[in-house]
């Protein structure tokens, strides 16, 4: 029974309210996308998000405007950083998660508690010494400070996610493998990794979104335009080109959200499950 327990008019009322609320929620985004197709003179005089036509002039202007660098460079940089972070998280978090979920080594309870504790560690406590490390290694203004830590499982959220997942896999599979002479590493590669694919996908999606949206660490470590990511490229619209470039600015901000929206559309189910089971922030 699709309409639930509610009588007709109450159901209509609920839907009316929900639709109005949904419209209010996404209106700012619609307005932004609409404005990206409008000439500057119309952007701040019209409330309607609908443009009068599909004019891509703002996109062409925005792609190169005011930065001296094309957005293609920023996109490539963002994708490199995302790919590196994803590879790092998949590698390091799955290894750690397997140990915490399955292996009975001494001190696992304490270490597990420490791992959970790092979930609450504010980024800003560690940032000064981290910066000093990367400065000393002369890694500033490269992608390394944004990628290398991920290969050492600094995002405990994903370890936790995978631990939960591995614990739901029956032990019998590994016991059978052990009888066949399979070591821990073999079990991990041949049995666990294929079975935790959903958790690996969730990790990939969230790492992508967080890295794509990240601003603070990119601001900290990347200083020259040829290394700028999307976040830093967009920020330049605030510094330089000033009041005359609203259209191109909205064109580039709209475009920058597209990869995240595409990922969301394709992996919605995984995302929702990921949040619901671990409380990952969106």
């Amino acid at each position: 029974m699709v309409w639930g327990r509610r009588s007709g008019w109450r159901s209509w009322l609920l839907h009316g309210g929900l639709i109005a609320g949904a419209f209010a929620m996404i209106y700012p985004l619609l307005w932004m996308v609409g404005s990206s197709f409008k000439p500057d003179s119309q952007i701040f005089t019209e409330l309607s998000p609908l443009p009068r036509g599909l004019d891509f002039a703002n996109y062409a202007r925005g792609w190169t405007l005011g930065t001296g660098m094309r957005f293609s460079v920023f996109y490539v940089n963002s994708f490199i950083v995302c790919a590196g972070a994803i590879a790092g998280n998949l590698f390091s978090c799955s290894l750690a998660a397997y140990a915490f979920a399955r292996i009975r080594f001494r001190g696992r309870r304490v270490l597990f508690a420490v791992m959970l504790g790092t979930l609450m560690l504010p980024f800003h406590v560690t940032i000064v010494p981290q910066y000093i490390i990367f400065h000393t290694l002369e890694w500033t203004n490269t992608f390394l400070p944004l990628i290398v830590p991920k290969f050492f499982a600094v995002d405990a959220f994903f370890i936790f996610l995978m631990v939960q997942f591995i614990r739901s896999i029956p032990l019998e599979l590994e016991e059978a493998a052990m009888i066949d002479g399979c070591g821990r590493f073999g079990m991990f590669i041949r049995i666990i990794l294929p079975l935790i694919k959903p958790a690996l996908v969730t990790t990939t999606i969230f790492t992508f979104i967080w890295t794509w949206n990240d601003f603070f660490s990119q601001l900290l470590y990347l200083n020259t335009q040829d290394n700028y990511t999307i976040s830093l490229g967009l920020r330049q619209f605030l510094d330089s080109s000033g009041a005359s470039a609203w259209g191109p600015m909205f064109a580039m901000t709209s475009l920058s959200l597209l990869p995240v929206i595409l990922v969301f559309l394709f992996f919605q189910k995984r995302l929702v499950e990921g949040i619901a089971t671990t409380g990952l922030k969106g």
Binding site: F91, A99, F105, T118, I127, F152, F185
Partner: peptide, 20 residues
């Protein structure tokens, strides 16, 4: 086995989180 699997995490903990 446990410590080997945890090695990357432990290095990360020391170098990037607890140490700093």
């Amino acid at each position: 086995a446990g410590y080997l699997f945890l090695l990357p995490w432990f290095i990360g903990l020391t170098v990037f989180l607890a140490g700093p």
